[in-house]
Simulated scan of single mutants.
Amino acid sequence: MKIVPAADGPAIVACNTCRYTANTRDNQDGQRGGAQLVAALREVQAEDPTFAGVAVQEMPCLFACADFCTIHLRAPGKVGYVLGRFAPDADAARAILDYAILYATSETGQVPFKQWPAGVKGHFITRTPPAGALVE
């Protein structure tokens, strides 16, 4: 494993090696679901300048293998979230990016449930405290 520098602002870190579905590793073209989700996130982000404030980053394996197509949402000083079980498509990418904008503009990373896009509801796996802090 090699640690590489990345932008330190709000970011969606997508697992580029995630399974396509719970039971299928690759799609019919041999592509992993995670790689497809990364491509969808970048395409949707490129189409809408609203999403420019959140980086789309990728890395192999977030170790959430039971939950395919996973992402980690993070920002300095904010609670982080791991979400998964997404379809690797534009609809999921837009929901993730819509939530990421709300997350980025929040004080602590917590977004009121009533503001969550429908496409992220039911996809949360874990939340992680910011470095050097705990959540009460």
Rank of each mutant, 00 (worst) to 15 (best):
A92P: 07
K2T: 15
T24F: 00
Q28K: 12
V135Q: 14
Q115E: 14
Q115P: 04
Y20P: 07
T108W: 04
A64E: 01
Q110I: 08
G30Y: 01
K2L: 10
A39G: 07
C61H: 12
V38E: 04
R25K: 12
P60C: 03
G119S: 01
V82M: 06
A66R: 14
P10K: 06
A22Q: 14
E136K: 10
A46N: 14
Q45D: 10
P5V: 11
A87F: 00
L73A: 07
L97K: 03
E43K: 14
Q28C: 04
A52V: 05
D8C: 09
S106P: 01
E107R: 11
A75Q: 01
S106T: 00
P49M: 00
N27V: 02
A35V: 07
I101V: 15
Y99T: 03
Y20K: 12
A95K: 04
A131V: 12
I71N: 14
Y81Q: 13
A35R: 12
L83K: 07
L37W: 14
T108F: 01
E107N: 12
V135D: 11
R19H: 13
L102H: 03
T105L: 11
E107M: 05
V4H: 13
C69R: 11
D26I: 09
G80Q: 05
P88Y: 01
A66H: 11
P117M: 01
D29S: 15
A14V: 02
P76I: 04
V44R: 10
N16I: 09
Y99W: 15
Q28I: 07
C18F: 07
A133F: 08
C15M: 14
P5F: 10
G132K: 11
G80L: 02
V54W: 05
A131S: 10
I71H: 13
A131W: 08
R74C: 09
A133D: 09
A40R: 08
E47P: 04
K2M: 10
F124N: 07
T108D: 12
A14W: 01
Q57P: 05
A22R: 11
A131Y: 12
P88S: 02
T126V: 09
L102G: 05
D98P: 06
Y81F: 15
G77D: 05
T126N: 10
P129V: 02
T70Q: 13
A11W: 09
A92W: 08
V13A: 08
V13S: 10
N16F: 06
A39S: 14
A92G: 15
G122Q: 03
T21M: 03
G119K: 01
P76M: 10
A118F: 04
A104L: 01
D89P: 10
P117I: 00
W116N: 00
T21K: 09
G84Y: 00
D26E: 14
F51E: 10
F86S: 03
I71F: 11
S106M: 02
C65V: 05
Q115L: 13
A6C: 09
P129H: 05
